[in-house]
Simulated scan of single mutants.
Amino acid sequence: MSEILGSLALGTFASGSRAFAGLVRGDRVLELDAHAAALGLTAPITTRDLLADWDRVLPLLEALDGPTIGLSDLRVLPPVRPRQILQSGANYRTHVIDLAVAHRGPDDSEEQVRAATAAMMDARIANGTPYLFIGLPSAIAGPHDDLVLPGYSDRHDWELELAAVIGAPAYRVDRDRALRHVAAYTIVNDITTRDLVFRRDMPEIGTDWYRSKNAPGFLPLGPWLVPAAHVPDPMNLRVTLTLNGDVMQDESTKDMIFDVAAVVAAASQITPLHPGDLVLTGSPAGNGMHHGRLLRDGDVMTGAITGLGTQRVRCVAESAA
């Protein structure tokens, strides 16, 4: 396990067929069902139960002590099962420029595209709002689960992201208050099938995020929920993804166009956000389209964000029917 910010993190684990929420300290896990009474909750406890009463529960979690289990003896599951996933696209300046260059027309020079895209983002920052869309909870997988690459395409790509985890319900909150509703942070790899992003049969419709992002396992999540109180500045974290040991993404969250607070506030304007919901904040530069190298059978992606742990996902080709 990589270092976590603060003294603890939360996760969900399996021992055999039994799943449970646990408190992570170092390489040891404290099973929380045994401490339900101390937490004022009823077993079995889920991380979503904790997030629903976060301000009261967090100091109690920090004070817990007792017998622990070695992390190596457990399977790490997705740390939370959200009701809703709100995703932010085109939210890192360098990434947006790289995508625009990759998709430029044959008559457009790279310099022209870079300049035009930079001007567009400056206008968005001044007058626009985050670009949001919906993800399916059924796409969530554990942080160490294999990713089955669907056989209908050979253009699957990675996008490592910081995700804000909602605690207190949020509905139409403004940016100044938005972070009060964030209980924790975690890591998500937003896998994308590039040739399904745009509908060739209906180009006027634009992007098709349902088909391109929601296959089973396309949202490896976790490993941990790190309390927001232990993350001094979510806008100063390093997002890093390696492919078979080679660095592909390595960028600071400082490169976001709209910061975490702005993205959470925008997500709350249309739909109420509930405890455990995820708000993804976009992915930095360095995806496969930029490198000209998309995912293949046997690839291993290792993703980390400062102090939030590490996920390791192996890619497996879909078996022929």
Results as ranks from 00 to 15, higher is better:
S268N: 08
A36W: 09
I85F: 04
G128Q: 04
P275E: 12
N214A: 02
S15G: 01
R124W: 15
P78I: 04
S109A: 05
H181C: 04
M301T: 15
I45D: 10
A141H: 01
I166G: 06
R312E: 03
V247I: 14
A267W: 11
T253Y: 05
D146W: 01
L74N: 09
P130K: 06
R155H: 08
A37W: 00
R75M: 06
L77I: 01
D157Y: 08
P227G: 09
R114T: 01
T46N: 03
D53H: 14
D108S: 13
E161V: 01
D107G: 13
R211E: 07
L99V: 14
T117L: 08
R75P: 00
H290K: 14
R211A: 13
R56V: 05
H156F: 07
D250M: 02
P169N: 11
W158N: 07
A63I: 00
P137S: 09
Y131M: 10
R180V: 01
R75C: 01
V29N: 01
V96L: 15
E110M: 13
P67E: 04
R314M: 12
M289S: 13
T129I: 06
L221T: 08
R296A: 14
L74C: 08
I205E: 10
L23Y: 06
S7D: 15
Q84K: 15
G105R: 15
A228N: 07
D73L: 05
A14V: 00
H103T: 11
N91P: 02
P272Q: 09
Q84W: 01
G135P: 00
T117V: 09
G70C: 02
G167P: 01
L23R: 03
G151A: 14
G89R: 08
P137T: 09
R81G: 03
L278P: 05
L243I: 04
R199Q: 14
Y185H: 11
V76T: 11
T271V: 14
T46Y: 02
A261R: 10
I191A: 02
F198V: 06
F13R: 10
G222W: 06
G11S: 12
D246L: 10
H274N: 09
